[in-house]
């Protein structure tokens, strides 16, 4: 048994951890996004070439992950704002978290399907 152990915690702790991780992911993508969009200042061809890469299956999968991260981070952010402002939200924070997870999956799965559709249909894009 290693000398460090993980604090068990409950849903709130793991929502906090997931919020941090998705926050870092979204931030890193934002940095990448600033770089790829600013390429238009250098040359239109370069911009197009780089953006063709986003049609690649790995980057599409990355985008699906990013979509889930964005959905969870934004919806959970709204949950935290609600917890800050409304006593009712503090009492029902676990229910709110369930709603966040359900909404993330409910929106993420169909949108993820749309992003991956070219590969699922076999009609490769770009």
């Amino acid at each position: 048994m290693s000398s460090t152990t993980v604090y068990k915690g409950r849903s709130g702790q793991w929502a906090f951890v997931a919020h941090r991780i998705t926050g870092v992911l979204v931030f890193l993508f934002l940095l990448l996004h600033i770089v790829d969009v600013s390429l238009i200042n250098l040359s239109a061809e370069l911009y197009d070439e780089v953006h063709q890469l986003y049609g690649n299956v790995l980057l599409r999968l990355f985008e699906v992950g990013l979509l889930f991260a964005l959905l969870f981070h934004s919806l959970n952010g709204l949950r935290l704002v609600a917890v800050d402002f409304f006593p009712g939200a503090v009492r029902n924070e676990r229910r709110l978290l369930s709603a966040v997870v359900v909404l993330t999956v409910a929106v993420g799965v169909p949108c993820g399907y749309v992003i991956m559709k070219p590969f699922i249909d076999g009609t490769l894009l770009g």
């Binding site: 604090y7 409950r10 849903s11 709130g12 906090f16 800050d84 006593p87």
Partner: peptide, 26 residues
Amino acid sequence: CRTAFNCTNACPRGIKVTQAIQEVKR
């Protein structure tokens, strides 16, 4: 406070700790 609710779950006296923190924030 990042509202992880660990404090509320840990309190052996059942104090609604997170709620108290939110009230002070307000």
